[in-house]
């Protein structure tokens, strides 16, 4: 299969994942073929247990497939070692989790610059990037706060900042609004849509939040681990 790494950022081909639940095989996803393109602002939706999170984990290399292939930026994930995967995630994917998952012992600034540190970005550059993204996300002045001193929305914004600061080619967000009130959630989503438009960053959500669906320009629906619809809206 030909993958155009310029436009096709994630390509999943015949992806299946089977878990063993107390000895009983459970199919989480079944033969999914899906391509995420550059500048997508896509939502993967479906009821609980439809395989959204599993699929997201698979395309980010956090989980392995039982069958099928996944290309990320033109690279076949199954051919990468654990260490290559770690480095690849670090350099290409930004994550936003449902439970924010900020590192509790690090300040806002430290949480955000952490990945850049791992990448070996010099201090001055880190500093300016952090300041820039904090300003963009309306978090200026919060640099030295600890996560516990922030509200849920603020924490999730920090998580977004952390995901975006190193300029990944794609941001994967697993139910980013689930723990936020609707107003905060909406603000956050608008912010991400704005970033998508201005910086051309690709976003993929897994969600069943209608607010997310409203704003997504591509809606992939999963049911029982299979894609039942894939609509693009403008």
């Amino acid at each position: 299969m030909e993958v155009n790494a310029q436009t096709e950022i994630i390509v999943a081909e015949g992806v299946s994942k089977t878990y063993s639940d107390h000895g009983v095989p459970v199919s989480a996803v079944k033969e999914i073929d899906l391509t995420i393109r550059t500048e997508d602002f896509a939502a993967i939706v479906g009821p609980s247990g439809s395989g959204k999170t599993t699929f997201l984990n698979i395309i980010s290399g956090l989980d392995t497939v039982t069958e099928g292939k996944v290309w990320l930026n033109g690279k076949l994930l199954s051919e990468m070692s654990g260490r290559e995967l770690s480095d690849f995630r670090r350099d290409n994917i930004g994550f936003i989790f449902q439970a924010y998952n900020l590192i509790p012992v690090l300040s806002v600034e430290e949480n955000i610059e952490y990945i850049m540190l791992l990448q070996g970005v010099p201090k001055s550059e880190r500093h300016s990037k952090v300041n820039k993204i904090l300003a963009e996300l309306g978090l200026s002045g919060f640099e030295n706060r600890m996560p516990t001193q922030l509200s849920g929305g603020q924490q999730q914004r920090v998580a977004v900042a952390r995901a975006m600061v190193s300029n990944p080619s794609i941001i994967l967000a697993d139910e980013p609004t689930a723990n936020l009130d609707s107003k905060t959630g909406a603000e956050l989503l608008d912010l991400m849509r704005e970033l998508n438009k201005t910086s051309g960053m690709t976003f993929v959500f897994s969600t069943h939040d209608p607010m997310v669906m409203e704003r997504a320009h591509r809606l992939v629906t999963l049911k029982d681990g299979q894609v039942v619809s894939d609509e693009i809206r403008e």
Binding site: S86, N101, I103, Y114
Partner: peptide, 12 residues
């Protein structure tokens, strides 16, 4: 926490 770190690309 370790899971998050690993997801972010921290090596084992």
């Amino acid at each position: 926490e370790y899971g998050v770190l690993k997801a972010l690309g921290v090596r084992p």
